[in-house]
Design a protein around this nucleic acid. Structure first.
Lengths: 187, 187
DNA sequence: ATAGGGGAGTGATCCAGATCACTCCATAAC
DNA sequence: GTTATGGAGTGATCTGGATCACTCCCCTAT
């Protein structure tokens, strides 16, 4: 399970055996069943999650109890409510398993200590943050420029495996359209 | 002009006089008039801009020549086409001045060298990247959960000075609605 | 002073997508 | 087997926003 994390980090920065040991010592493994909440709206959030196996959704639930999907997260991704994590506030989001999943997590204190002990890891996190930002900006651009059908096509293109793994209603909640509208779309 | 950058960085990491000198040596100042392009779609982009004074829009122009505003940028902000910058591709975006503006820029090579020479600066950029990502995610969430009127209200709340500084049509292009619709909105 | 141009409001019409109400499966549970 | 239960399609109706066409106003250049 730690191997997944190690390979993931080494794609960006080389590590010695000792560094791998050091990093691993900051992470804890945990498994969840489909449907379980990794964290839930209103909780304090002090962890940052790396997904070894599985599929999750990051969700905002509005006052009418509607779920809006901010993002899906799968193998080799990091997920968290970043704002709550860094600003030490309670979450406004929930992270929910769409499949049985295996996670590794690091606490905020662990994260800070790790960055102090092994500064080059910040380079790794910086890379992740940049690409997360770029992806978010692209999604914004896609809502500005494309209609629903086109955005659905883009979604399928970007995550080809997703259609097989989640019900269409979840894809609709990600695109911000109704289940019915998505069902009526012909590509 | 460099003072603005210095104060900006020192809000996150402390700097010695020598470090300030070092950093300043990597940046070049440049001024633009209202309406000028800082960079334009199709160009190779190897610079990262810090805005000392002024107001700009980051824009995607679609095949029908419509402008979609990915973001506004003002005093103390960084702007660039991050994807083009890091992946060394040609830009798909344009950065256009909405007011006379003063910028400082760093090249990609300069950026890399600076990070190698002064690793703690990566901590600074990491912080910026995280908060950029968080802001982008919030904007996505706002398009998922709120109607146009509510999103307009949020925009005014977040950037209260913006209404006085840019024509309403620009705000419409940011929100992804037509000029006419925005004009019909009562708050 | 006059003309031209950019910003903004507004009416009429049209359409994409929401909503509600249903049907038709599969698969799992009794 | 029979019955829930969740996923998916579809028809009818309604509405927010796009689009087009226009007016009005203010500012700047001639």
């Amino acid at each position: 399970m730690f191997d997944a994390l190690r390979n993931h980090i080494e794609k960006i920065i080389p590590l010695t055996e000792e560094e791998v040991e050091l990093i691993a010592s900051f992470f804890t493994a945990r498994s969840y069943k489909k449907g379980q909440f990794v964290f839930q709206e209103g909780e304090p959030l002090t962890k940052h999650y790396f997904i070894c196996k599985g599929l999750l959704k990051l969700v905002y639930t509005d006052t009418d109890a509607r779920e809006h999907i901010i993002g899906f997260a799968m193998e080799d991704w990091w997920e968290s409510d970043f704002e709550a994590f860094y600003t030490q506030q309670h979450t406004t989001l929930s992270l929910i398993c769409l499949e049985d999943t295996d996670l590794l997590y690091i606490t905020l204190e662990g994260y800070k200590t790790l960055c102090r002990t092994l500064p080059k890891i910040e380079h790794f996190f910086l890379e992740k943050a940049y690409f997360g930002f770029i992806a978010a900006q692209k999604r914004i651009l896609s809502t500005l420029t494309s209609n629903t059908s086109e955005r659905y096509r883009q979604l399928l293109e970007r995550y080809p495996t997703l259609v097989q793994r989640v019900p269409k209603a979840q894809l609709a909640a990600y695109l911000g359209v109704s289940r019915e509208t998505l069902s009526r779309i012909s590509l």
